[in-house]
Design a protein around this nucleic acid. Structure first.
Lengths: 287, 287
DNA sequence: AATTCACGTATATAAAATATACGCAAAAGA
DNA sequence: TCTTTTGCGTATATTTTATATACGTGAATT
């Protein structure tokens, strides 16, 4: 982490790099510093990174120069886009973001904000301490239509691209399972652990899914798909925890026979389909 | 934004709240301040938020008290989890995150990091200025197997849950389309805009997808699914831009006939299927 | 019993930021 | 065309914030 002035220099560079311009007022507003201090900061930036910006009297802003040499920032498109996404989804208030001019954006499907903060805190605590906790859990199980109390020993978190679950040893069923955080309605007393994360074979072991372009695509289309998915010689390998296999396949549209789907909507297929299905069964049945 | 000391108070509260403890050394390490200053900060925190922490001589750390009154932080599970996700995916270096003890976590499918930073910058610039740009774009179109230069007027960004695209007016095809950022290989000269975002009907208008629990589920399971998706009286409405409809449906597994899929993997179905398909066609064909 | 560690705190000093004031240049408005 | 407004720059005295250095405490560890 960096101290005040350094952070402001980084901020100046961020705005110049991603938004093309910065103002004295921008600094005053964002950091709550005085006007002279903002002037000093801008002067300091010019001294430290000469030639990166010039004052445009028309717009009354410093604009980024053509050739721009980064000095304080290591910018990353995915960091910028992650911020854009967080703000667009409402996860982060826009005044906390360094992005001033938010471009119009939309995210397909924003998760319902239904994780209880107290639940997450207590589960995190249990993971940290390696303890077990009682949870009042609503499962989808047919035999348990209503939520019940059960003891679990959580050890890791998983994100399926849409929702978060916790990976835990279930003291009721004597095996490791995933528990969706929004379905944990309450958390009760801590206690002695069951099995630890090291014993969770499905979590600790990986299966290699081999993927390739959909056979119905043309050669040139296959090339594009190969580039999209980073496939080297046509095929590519995805190393996935058994515990995450189902979610990965679902997300890639590979749960069924992908080749039977239209190549328009489904661009890739599984090459080692038999093995993948066996692995999936292994993961589902627990092993 | 907040100044140095305020940020450190917020940091103290963050660590106490999410990790249950904080140290003088934590402050020294993260902010690079001196030991006396860290002592002062902790003393100041105790003064401003009395009773929130107490010193545990065993672990030599301040630990969060049972009853914890937030004073400097407005914690949100999704903000915490977004951070966890960003670090787990490698989008953010872990020393930039306020989370010290990262719990074990995994994310199903991390996007390939193949967006060119210069491309994104220039596209952002064009969106900001309302200008058009030439892009060297690799499409999946059968008639255009190789990348070609085309002029577009971009106006918004879209995220389908996996990849980012830019929404733009295509000067070649005279209509609005999505352009995947990783497939923009180069960006050329800026120029006069084509049509603006206001003219993009598919972006500006919404279609209501009506969803409900999979019919093959039991009553109790349906209730769980209803809660999962925030459905009120069994069914729920998702208001989606036409331009994003395809991605939302794909993500929800609703592109085909969801009812034909196993209720085990597919929990919801589209109620207004006919209308949705018509809307999708409208969006695809452009209108 | 000795050592280690993390805490607290005091004092003098250094660095960072503010308040206040004034001047400049260009754009916008009368 | 003249005036006003706005945003930048900078100077000085002052306040706030943080550092360096030093010393003392108590509890856990060896």
């Amino acid at each position: 982490m960096i101290w005040g002035a350094g952070q402001r220099l980084e901020f100046i560079e961020f705005r110049l790099f991603w938004e093309g311009a910065i103002n004295r007022a921008d600094l005053v507003e964002f950091f709550g510093i005085s006007i002279p201090q903002a002037s000093k900061d801008l002067a300091l930036y010019q001294e430290r990174a000469p030639g990166n910006m010039e004052y445009d009297k028309r717009s009354k802003r410093y604009v980024a120069a053509e050739q721009f040499v980064l000095r304080f920032l290591d910018p990353d498109p995915y960091v910028y886009l992650a911020q854009l996404r967080a703000v667009t989804e409402g996860a982060v208030p826009s005044h906390d973001s360094w992005i001033a001019e938010l471009p119009r954006a939309d995210v397909a499907l924003t998760p319902k904000r239904d994780i209880d903060i107290g639940v997450l805190r207590k589960v995190l605590d249990a993971v940290r301490e390696g303890a077990s906790v009682e949870v009042f859990y609503q499962s989808m199980n047919k035999v348990r239509p209503d939520p019940i109390w059960r003891r679990i020993t959580p050890h890791a978190f998983g994100y399926d691209g849409f929702r978060w679950h916790v990976r835990a040893y279930c003291h009721l069923e004597h095996r490791f399972k995933d528990f969706l955080l929004p379905r944990i309605l309450e958390v009760g007393a801590k206690g002695e652990p069951g099995e630890t994360g090291e014993q969770d074979w499905l979590w600790n072991n990986y299966f290699d899914v081999v993927i390739g372009p959909h056979p119905a695509l043309t050669e040139s289309q296959k090339k594009v798909v190969a580039k999209d998915y980073g496939l080297d010689h046509g095929n590519g390998v995805l190393s996935v925890r058994y515990a995450m296999l189902f979610y990965v396949l679902k997300r890639l549209g590979l749960l069924g026979d992908a080749a039977k789907q239209s190549a328009h909507t489904q661009h890739i297929v599984t090459i080692n389909r038999k093995e993948t299905e066996a692995a999936l069964e292994k993961a589902e049945l627990r092993l």
